[in-house]
């Protein structure tokens, strides 16, 4: 009885009594969700263009952040370190296309998936060999103090993260929908052979997609790195992107964003108001439970293309 009250009654009383606090929690959750979306976005890009689930996305996030911090530690000014890291990520994408993907054209998606697992281990190791495995502090001068807005406390850093994510998504959306290359990307995702027949060079397109995913990884790496420190656990952040993808659908950029927001908000609200009923630490599994529910009832996600299989 006590348990049921803790689930169905007390949280709502609490919300009713402290509405501002509730809004604060929701807002904090939404902003944290943006950070999940950033990681999920990298997955979506590669999945859209090649149908491959890129297990190495988390490793790319870490690699980008490590490279950036490493260069700053070697005395590069921040802007130069940023540009150099961008170049490194583009070069990395081209190398991946040449060394890994090109050999695997026309292979089953599962083969490509396994290749990305290998890639993920390689990048983890390579990044740490180059730059060391200590926890590094990444400070780009983004303010991190909470500010008060209409009586609600909001973290400035979270606002910056949300703004960067918003910009990134807007640019990507235009890039995908309105340009020749964007159209070519979508074409390649739909049908390799037809894409070749209209003269779309598959290899170039793959290199571009991986480069863009690498850049998105860099942005995610900067945000997460600033928050958690640049270290191996950054790759685990990618795990949190999985439920986001299941909610939003693997093929939808807006899906990745909204999925991230729902998960971020959901787990914060659940933790704060329902945590007590379950003895706390809901945050760790809430996202996965939500994803499981989605898999049962709406496997294509909120925005994914509906899977129609002719039998």
């Amino acid at each position: 009885m006590e348990f049921l009250t803790a689930i169905f009654v007390s949280p709502f009383i609490e919300i009713y009594e402290y509405p501002l606090f509730f809004i604060e929690v929701v807002l904090g959750g939404l902003l944290a969700g943006v950070m999940y979306s950033l990681v999920a976005l990298g997955f979506v890009l590669i999945f859209k263009a090649s149908g491959v689930f890129n297990f190495a996305q988390g490793a790319m996030v870490l690699f980008a952040a490590l490279t950036l911090v490493g260069l700053i530690e070697h005395g590069f000014p921040i802007w130069l370190a940023l540009i150099s890291t961008i170049i490194v990520m583009i070069a990395l994408a081209m190398a991946i296309e040449k060394v890994v993907l090109r050999k695997l054209v026309n292979q089953e998606p599962i083969i490509l998936f396994m290749a990305t697992i290998g890639l993920s281990y390689f990048l983890d190791g390579f990044g740490q060999t180059l730059w060391g495995s200590d926890v590094k502090v990444l400070d780009l001068g983004i303010p991190n103090a909470p500010i008060e807005f209409l009586g609600i406390l909001v973290n400035q850093f979270d606002l910056v993260a949300a703004a960067s994510a918003g910009t990134l998504v807007a640019v990507l959306a235009i890039f995908f929908q309105k340009t020749r290359i964007g159209r070519a990307l979508r074409a390649v995702a739909d049908d390799h052979q037809a894409a070749l027949s209209v003269g779309i060079p598959l290899k170039t397109i793959w290199a571009i997609v991986w480069a863009v995913a690498g850049l998105v990884g860099l942005v995610a790496g900067i945000m997460w790195g600033t928050k958690l420190g640049v270290q191996f656990t950054l790759t685990l952040v990618a795990l949190k992107a999985l439920p986001v993808l299941i909610l939003g659908g693997f093929t939808s950029i807006p899906g990745a964003i909204i999925g991230g927001l729902i998960i971020g908000m959901g787990e914060k609200v659940a933790e704060v108001f329902w945590g007590a009923a379950f003895g706390g630490a809901i945050e760790d599994w809430f996202a996965y439970m939500l994803a499981l529910a989605f898999l049962l009832f709406r496997p294509q996600g909120l925005f994914g293309e509906k899977i129609i299989e002719r039998v």
């Binding site: 979508r186 074409a187 739909d190 049908d191 037809a194």
Partner: peptide
């Protein structure tokens, strides 16, 4: 067998 980009 028609190879169009079905989602577009």
């Amino acid at each position: 067998n028609i190879a169009l980009f079905k989602g577009m």
